[in-house]
Design a protein around this nucleic acid. Structure first.
Lengths: 141, 141
DNA sequence: CTGTGTGCAAACACTTTGCAGGTGT
DNA sequence: ACACCTGCAAAGTGTTTGCACACAG
């Protein structure tokens, strides 16, 4: 994969290319996993204000650059959208959360199965969260 | 379904049957959906202390009476375990979150599909969150 | 009686927001 | 120039915890 042009990616999504937004985007592309506000903030502090970081994340989300990943912990996580253009927002997500290291990865390759719903329920989007142990943490056993 | 004997259910799970714990359990069984601390607290206030309610939820969770439901909002939700005994904790969950009313329901009838993981990943549990519109909110359209 | 559960209150963590000033286009 | 973005700081909301007392078994 070529080194992503963060500035161009931001512009594609109708976002301004600022020092902060590029820094946040850089963390997402290098981490390749879902990150919480706290994780991002720890990497960026004290350069980026907490409140500003929340606004950046919301902005990224509303412009289709990242999506929100439900988490069973206190805070929510965000992950870079992989197959979403600003126009066609991919709505099927598959995530793997390692019970050892706590990291959540997007598994873009796996396909999401069809699930039949009871009468009356109208499905729009399927989100799958697999829990288990990631390759790195199995080695550590 | 017979009226659940909350007191007995608590004892099965090695929990004491107190006024508070019965009240919380009553809310879960009557709501039949995932509830957040805030929702429970609103129904119980000012009878049950906030901190106590958090402890009750954690106690219920660790004793296999409720499970934690990942949510994409600020706070976490909890739902009554349906097919879990204190011994055999059922680890497959399917949830439906309505985008209109925001309620999350457990769909116990639907089966969880098998998902093949990339090499190195060891799966332990699958959680599925379907988003869409629930029967009640479709009628309201 | 003994261990568990509770209320109160303080502390901590997470998130949102108003405003004045700075920056990208 | 203008709209957008940022830092600061305050406030709002969610969560945890210590302690003394109350209650269930």
């Amino acid at each position: 994969m070529p080194i992503p042009d963060h500035s161009a990616l931001l512009k594609e999504h109708r976002l301004r290319s600022t020092q902060n937004s590029r820094a946040v985007l850089r963390l997402f592309t290098s981490a390749q996993r879902a990150l919480s506000h706290g994780e991002l903030s720890a990497s960026l502090a004290p350069d980026v204000d907490r409140g500003t970081l929340y606004r950046i994340l919301h902005r990224f989300e509303s412009h289709g650059l990242v999506h929100r990943v439900p988490d069973d912990e206190v805070s929510v996580k965000f992950a870079l959208c992989q197959h979403c253009s600003p126009q066609t927002h991919e709505d099927q997500h598959l995530h793997f959360k390692c019970q050892v290291c706590g990291h959540t990865h997007c598994l873009a390759q796996q396909s999401i199965p069809e699930i039949s719903l009871p009468g009356g329920y109208q499905g729009q989007q399927t989100e799958v969260l697999l829990r288990g142990i990631c390759p790195r943490c199995q080695v550590a056993d």
